[in-house]
């Protein structure tokens, strides 16, 4: 049975542990696991980013992530996929998001991981608020993210 797992949490996580657990829960016919980790970064370099707060829309977030993950499963014939996304306040370099996909072969696992991130970035209701030395500022959406998501629409 193909299945999609979605987790939205405030707590910090360790990508290595998540990946290990994901691999261990796999089936005998899985030949490929791909994972992606997104980190808090200083968007404008040397701007003195102190922390990042991710606001989200509880309920809609889970709903959108489940829809995205289910779409990835069917579109790429995955065995499993996991989407883990944090909200709340976090520090520079902390992991924000973790995505893992598994399939018989690497091609679809790689593609599905790209797809999940591209779609998540334009559909999941999260908003980044940066705390810098000069005060707070909301991060603007990037046109590149819309373009990246658009390439999956055929």
């Amino acid at each position: 049975m193909a299945r999609a797992l979605v987790q939205v949490q405030e707590m910090a996580f360790t990508p290595g542990e998540e990946l290990d657990a994901f691999i261990r829960a796999g089936r005998a016919d899985e030949g490929a696991v791909v994972s992606f980790t997104g980190l808090v970064r200083d968007m404008a370099l040397n701007d003195g980013l102190k922390a990042l707060t991710l606001e989200h829309y509880p309920g809609m977030t889970e709903r959108q992530l489940i829809a995205i993950a289910d779409e990835a499963l069917t579109r790429f014939g995955l065995h499993r996929c996991l989407v883990l996304h944090r909200y709340g306040r976090m520090s520079l370099r902390e992991p924000i998001v973790f995505v893992a996909t598994s399939a018989a072969h690497r091609g679809s696992a790689f593609e599905a991981a790209c797809f999940l991130m591209d779609w998540l970035k334009t559909k999941a209701p999260f908003w980044k608020l940066e705390e810098t030395a000069e005060g707070e500022r909301w991060v603007d959406a990037r046109a590149e993210d819309d373009a990246a998501a658009a390439r999956w629409v055929s």
Partner: peptide
């Protein structure tokens, strides 16, 4: 909790949310 455009019809029991473009991931 589903993305919609400006023409989407509304019912009195709807939950309507307004927000800037999303910036997660």
């Amino acid at each position: 909790q589903e993305h919609v455009g400006p023409e989407h019809p509304l019912a009195p029991t709807d939950e309507v949310a307004f927000f800037p473009p999303v910036t997660g991931g």
